[in-house]
Amino acid sequence: MLKKLYCEFLRFGCFTFGGGWSIVAQMNELYVKQEKILTNEELLDITSIGRSLPGTMIGNIAMLFGYRMRGFFGGVACVFGMITAPMIVLILITTFYSMFQDNVWVASAMKGVRAAVAPVILSALMAMLHSAFKFPPCYLVALLMFGLYFFAGVSCVWLVIFGAILGLVICEYYEKKVKRDD
């Protein structure tokens, strides 16, 4: 099991372009759609917690997921699996720095890959949409946080804290409403 986790995250690690968000898309593909050992809701939870903790988001996501599967060592297996490929690539690049620096072929390939990152993340987001909105006001929360992030540049930590408070308020409101209606 530890070896399986390590190998899966080794593979994810090879394709984590664009700040690592594509790891979420890959986890969605393997664990939610194929193996069905994780729900979209759980993946969203892991993502939002991992994003709001200090350090590297995908390292945190790997730890949270690995811990769920196999405790601390499961987390360690995922984290070290995830960093293996990027580390080897960077060690090679540092060693042959001058050769990579101005290579047209490398730059062109990378420009193509960068163009793929947004669609990859978007496809993961679409898959997670259904599980994100429990009550109608949740749509407003998403819209508000989008605005705060994109237009006001508010840090993700604050957005998650703000979302948490709104979650408490919204749920309390609906619970009281159910009681009133009874």
């Binding site: 969203l44 947004a118 993340i121 949740c138 998650v160 749920c171």
Partner: peptide
């Protein structure tokens, strides 16, 4: 309470990711 909190955090995360996509 954690369930309630996550009810708000999940849509917040969706909003954030949408922002990231536009930024990229």
């Amino acid at each position: 309470h954690l369930v309630q909190i996550m009810t708000g955090v999940r849509p917040a995360c969706v909003g954030m990711v949408a922002g990231v996509i536009l930024e990229m």
